[in-house]
Design a protein around this nucleic acid. Structure first.
Length: 491
RNA sequence: CGGGGUGUAGCGCAGCCCGGUUAGCGCGCGUCGUUCGGGACGACGAGGUCGGGAGUUCAAAUCUCCCCACCCCGACCA
């Protein structure tokens, strides 16, 4: 394995893969399109997961678990939903293998065909609504606010680590409400949680808004989204929250009696974020040295590399650091000491940079003589000397600053690559030459949206909540604009 | 599913065109020693169904045919 990673500027896709493999976030699984999330990557996912999970719980949601397998017939109950997912479903048709009568190995036993084939969930709306039908009779049973952390399978043609794999981990919330207004409020509340976690925890600035009908979830009334810009100026849908209205309730015949004793269909939402966010973290913050992790979600926040020629010298460095390390741990800072023998300090510096640890301590005899420590910031590369006594006080401040600086850098980058355009020529040249987000008017016609996608490959990433349409015209048709929208090339 | 490409040690590759000793190289790995403030060095060593099958031949990593797998590029997608 070579020392560094492919430069971002040379080949962005390869840089992305190199970083993931070399930082040991993940590796390819044996079946095409599958991915092994390695301990370091999983630890990062757990941080992300916890950030969401505690917020879901604070807002009254409960976790549960629904089955991986879904009767095939369930999928066909909601028309749009079928159309959306049927093309990428893994189907279980048999339940037994037998020794190959014609040779070695195993073959599917033809006698073990299932009476009703089952599909592996591409998402769980259908099983969940089948259950909600049993559980909901009265308005007193509502709302139901359930979330599940699970794996889902979508049989994709082209896959990329974290961004699009055949199986991925995610969180899917499924709520049932008595009124349309409550469901709408829920969908918006969740979107706000998504925005907050993305920006405050992952340090990823996001646009919030509505998806167009072409881009919305199959079966949703409307879909809200958070949309982020990656380091190659392409867009990544980072999370979606759907107001399903009564679509699934009608498809699964889920009704309740209201206070006036009237039978009504339930209103629903569903919402999800996935391990794709790990891909976003890599692409938004990474550089040519590897990952740069936001401190709030970094598995390790401070890594110590003791420097010495012998085991005794290393030992004395660790004694020297005992107090500040203890104090940092007491302040809740996640610290790691890299005391591996037989690996040079220089090697360790590079390795921890690859892994994106926000702060590195380099401590050897020179520091001990001066009663100081050497601290290096991963975000800027800045190397500084601090009095040892100040370390445990300074570390939290530095971590906070790094968190902030990563967010600011990402936001500046996004803003610098977001263009307001009035003409379609301008639009086309930006998409073709530099890429980025293009803000412009849209007449609201799906044909216009399709034509632009056909001609430029750019899609409407979102219809932002904040917008000004007065006097705006559609960039394509020249008609009065119905919305101001953000176009971009998407992952 | 269409177009292109690649399969040789854990990883990256050379050898193949033009068949012929014991199949090499770099990285990584193991042991020992010297090193250690930005990817250390030396010595010794382990590691191979040359993707699979069939064929041609005295002889196949190398030539022929079939199969398989994976990667890249396109249409669909969190």
């Amino acid at each position: 394995m070579s020392k560094g990673v492919t430069a971002k500027s040379e080949d962005y896709a390869r840089w992305y893969t190199d970083v993931i493999i070399k930082a040991r976030l993940a590796d390819y699984g044996p079946v095409k399109g599958t991915m092994v999330i390695r301990p370091y990557g999983f630890s990062l996912w757990e941080s992300v997961k916890d950030a969401f999970d505690c917020r879901f719980k604070e807002t009254g949601h409960e976790n549960a678990y629904f089955p991986l397998f879904i009767p095939k017939s369930f999928l066909s109950k909601e028309a749009e939903h079928v159309a959306g997912f049927a093309k990428e479903c893994a189907v279980v048709t048999h339940h037994r293998l037998i020794a190959d009568p014609d040779g070695e190995g195993l073959v599917v036993d033809p006698d073990s065909a299932l009476d009703e084939e089952v599909i592996v969930r591409p998402t769980s709306e259908t099983v969940i609504w089948a259950m909600y039908k049993k559980w909901i009779q009265s308005y007193r049973d509502l709302p139901i606010l359930i979330n599940q952390w699970a794996n889902v399978v979508r049989w994709e043609m082209r896959t990329r680590l974290f961004l699009r794999t055949t199986e991925f981990l995610w969180q899917e919330g499924h709520t049932a409400h008595a009124t349309a207004a409550e469901a709408e409020e829920e969908a918006r509340k969740i979107l706000e949680i998504y925005r907050e976690v993305a920006e405050d925890e992952l340090a990823i600035p996001v646009l919030t808004g509505l998806k167009t009908d072409a881009e919305k979830f199959a079966g949703a009334e409307h879909t809200y989204c958070i949309e982020a810009m990656m380091g190659d100026r392409r867009a990544l849908q980072a999370g979606t929250s759907h107001n399903l209205s009564q679509n699934f309730a009608k498809a699964f015949d889920v009704t309740f009696q209201n206070e006036e004793n009237q039978e009504q269909h339930v209103y629903a939402t569903s919402w999800g974020v996935s391990t794709r966010l790990i891909g976003a973290i890599v692409m938004v913050h990474g550089d040519d040295k590897g990952l740069r992790l936001p401190p709030r979600i970094a598995p390790e926040q401070v890594v110590t590399v003791p420097i010495g020629k012998s085991e005794e010298e290393i030992g004395s460095v660790l004694d020297y650091l005992e107090t500040p390390l203890k104090e940092m741990a007491e302040r809740g800072i996640r610290c790691h000491v890299d005391d591996r023998a037989g690996v040079t300090p220089g090697f360790k510096f590079n390795e921890w940079e690859m892994k994106g640890v926000p702060l590195r301590l380099e401590v050897g005899s020179r520091d001990m003589k001066e009663n100081s420590v050497t601290v290096v910031r991963r975000d800027t590369g800045e190397k500084m000397t601090l009095p040892k006594a100040e370390l445990s006080k300074e570390a939290p401040r530095l971590l906070k600053e790094i968190q902030q600086s990563l967010y600011e850098q990402a936001k500046t980058f996004r803003n610098e690559n977001t263009y307001s355009v009035e003409s379609y020529d301008e639009f086309k040249s930006i998409i073709a030459d530099t890429s980025g987000f293009v803000k412009c008017g849209w007449d609201g016609d799906p044909d216009t949206e399709a034509a632009i996608q056909e001609e430029t490959k750019a899609t409407i990433r979102c219809i932002p909540f904040e917008q000004e349409v007065d006097g705006l015209t559609c960039v394509y048709s020249g008609k009065p604009a119905k919305h101001e929208v953000i176009f971009g090339k998407a992952y």
